[in-house]
Design a protein around this nucleic acid. Sequence first.
DNA 1: ATCGGCTCGCGCAA
DNA 2: TGCGCGAAGCCGAT
Length: 461
Amino acid sequence: MQAIEQILPESPRVTVLRPGALGAGRAILLWVQRAQRATCNHAANVAVELANRLRLPVIAVFCLTPSYPRATWRAYHFMAEGLQEMPGAFSRRGIGWILRIGEPEEVIPALAAGTPAAAVVTDQDPLRPGRLWRERVAARLSVPLVAVETDVIVPTAYLPKEEWAPRTIRPKLRRHLPHELVPVPEPVATVPARVREGPDPVAALEELPIDRSVPPVAGLRGGATAGRARLERFIAHGLPRYHEQRLNATVDGTSRLSPYLHFGQMSPLQVALAALEAERNGVPQAAVEAFLDELITQRELAINFCLRNPAYDQYAGLPSWGQETLRRHVHDPRPVIYTLDEFAAAATHDRVWNACQRQMATEGWLPNVLRMYWAKQLLYWTRTPEEAHAIAVELNDRFFVDGRDANGYAQIAWSIGGRHDRPFPPEKPVIGLVRPMGLGALRKRFDVAAYVAEIERRAGS
DNA sequence: ATCGGCTCGCGCAA
DNA sequence: TGCGCGAAGCCGAT
């Protein structure tokens, strides 16, 4: 039997997680985990090309697991709406679909043995839970496992070290963009798979032991179709003035695509190509440049942080200068201390902060500039910076539809401890040299009172 | 209204 | 080894 390494495409996106000879299987399994979409998916392409060569069908599998840390009804509902579209979307490429409830390390090896599969192809995830799943599945499989990276524009293999700041990663990413910012092919399976198996994912949530205290967001729909509609709306209305308005929390000028990107319902490449297309159609270059810096530089810096720093969601993940300066001020008096529950209930003395927390709790989203203000204020109202960091992660992951995401962990590390940032003297009480961000910074960008009034109005109605 | 200075550490030039 | 410069700030001088 042929070794898997010999028939895979030579690509920095492809990693063999379990080497070996191809099994005498009847299908290639495509284990869908992070890239929950049927198009613009390099993992699906590798699976289809491999299967076509072996004259086998491709079957996509998704494991709906109840055990994901801090799994909420809100996030799972959004994800499940996306999963509902997948059997149809995959069938247009001749790919089958199986949805199973259970842990990947049980479901995937059992399915691979039962089918039987010649090999398993999956996507990549920079976060700890996804990496652990892949390790455990690889250990239990008896056929090869191949991971294909499809949720970054520039493959992470080109960035083997932890990057210091946007200015260090930007030129490295830029060098690769001419080669990476091109449409991906959409090969169709020549041996179609007709299998459609598994419960309706939204209905299946009823049975899962997830956190029901955080309900789905009213009026927000998950899935590739809703994501595409939002992308088109953003390109038409938000993108042309993005460079002027992205820090204005009272204008809906940001893309709000992060939940769709988080669950892989959209590909960042597809979004970037749409922005470049808009530039050819007359959208100002400065606007597109500012947007692509968020989508590519900042997003892939966050992914690099999570992939290369084992403490990405912990206090130890802050840079040493940040930890040291916070340490020096750990005994500075704090005017008031709140508990996690008081924060979660938006019950502080700060109306602006409470408005942020309220929007987060009801809409599962917050404009970027307010995420920073929100996180930085926690330093003043907790006993230690470790506690501030832990509370930020806890509330981020509980309430945001795009929680448990590399972007969130990087943004918290930036806000609280200056990761990817620099010191800002003079040294101030509590925060030391960490860049301050008070109401003044917000007022420079938008009408803060109008923002608070709008959130309080929505909460009252 | 705009501007420099404030600190730290990286990346590059020399 | 030196030098320029930076995720979204703040303060005070002009």
